[in-house]
Design a protein around this nucleic acid. Structure first.
Lengths: 192, 192
DNA sequence: CGCAAAACTGACGCGCGTGTCAGGTTGGGG
DNA sequence: CCCCAACCTGACACGCGCGTCAGTTTTGCG
């Protein structure tokens, strides 16, 4: 078997094992058993358990990063926001197994790892906050603490992702997009 | 020293150790060192590491459960919602260390433990969803998938809690309450 | 003060998962 | 067909953290 293939094979099975058992409960023995290789082979391709987990999560972070694009306030803001939401939800459904790892297991691996995840969401947060602040100046976004707004939006998104990943829920990608967008636009309670 | 006191002493220090290192990185040795008792003493009061962690989290779950009260649609809905939010934020600030455990470390302890946490949030979710559905019938709540709405609200709340707990942020309890409430009421984007 | 019960101690043994490495297998080029 | 290099194997030794328990100290009661 070719070298890259073997590596990929181990990665793929590791992903499933991690998703099933969680990071801590997953043993290297489980991964190699799933992949059908010997213990030693694993260590020919990866430093250790942590390294392979990190690689899996890193790849996903990059993809999520690419799914998010800045909103140009000169164009149709609503459509762009919706596109962003759609892109994220698409990726999430496509990569649900890995997304579960990101949302449920990536915490508590390591202090360094925690910081990395934190950093990623911080970046997303600041992009969003900036966009909101700019939107406020232009009157597109309601007044209020942009930082708090960004936090809540990210939280709502995370929670939906979590639900999609843990329950069934992929059935209606477009409904999720619409629901999220409606929430952004009008909140929940109707005017006084 | 009296029996209940010693137990409490170990609990308190365990809480801090867990909060500092996370569940998995925290060793029983760290807890006993922090509490200033011998290893054996720990096992006189608690079954094992998992048991003490569970007790800490359980207590908090009960308190959060009590902080949430059903909204009576006949009264002033806005005020009641605000009161609920305020109660949750208060508790969160008061118990920030333990809340961090709930939000960051409670995942990945155990399959059984995961289910417990999940169950708690499911209950909160269904109370909220019911309230939203009823609100929709009365025209107090905007139309839309109540389940999705509940998910997003809980997500927003969780994320704020997480921020409060990880960063500084306690400085302005009332601002958080106001921001959250505004988000519920009007969302973020202004009308078309 | 004396003594028993209750509380505490910490060295120890055990089990588990890790990472290694000496030896085996495979495959492709000569 | 043979040989060597690349690749794979899995038994093993090691370290870590856990839970125990025989022995020590403290408490409080007669």
């Amino acid at each position: 078997m070719e070298k890259g293939q073997r590596r990929q094979q181990i990665l793929t099975h590791a992903r499933q094992v991690f998703a099933r058992s969680g990071y801590h409960a997953a043993k290297v023995d489980d991964i190699v058993a799933a992949a059908g290789v010997a213990r030693g082979t694993f260590y020919l391709y990866f430093e250790d358990k942590r390294a392979i987990f990190e690689e899996i999560v890193d790849r996903l972070l990059v993809r999520f990063g690419m799914a998010i694009s800045r909103v140009d306030p000169k164009g149709d803001v609503g459509a762009q926001v919706q596109d962003n939401i759609r892109g994220i939800v698409r990726l999430l459904v496509e990569e649900r197994v890995t997304t579960k790892l990101l949302l449920s297991d990536a915490h508590g691996v390591d202090h360094a790892f925690d910081r990395k995840i934190q950093l990623f969401f911080d970046q997303v947060h600041s992009v969003l906050e900036e966009a909101l602040a700019e939107g406020q100046e232009r009157g597109i976004v309601g007044k209020g603490d942009a930082h708090l707004q960004a936090t809540m939006i990210i939280g709502a998104l995370k929670e939906i992702m979590h639900e999609v990943v843990v329950r069934g829920w992929d059935d209606d990608e477009e409904a999720i997009v619409a629901g999220l967008f409606a929430f952004l636009k009008r909140g929940v309670l109707t005017g006084e």
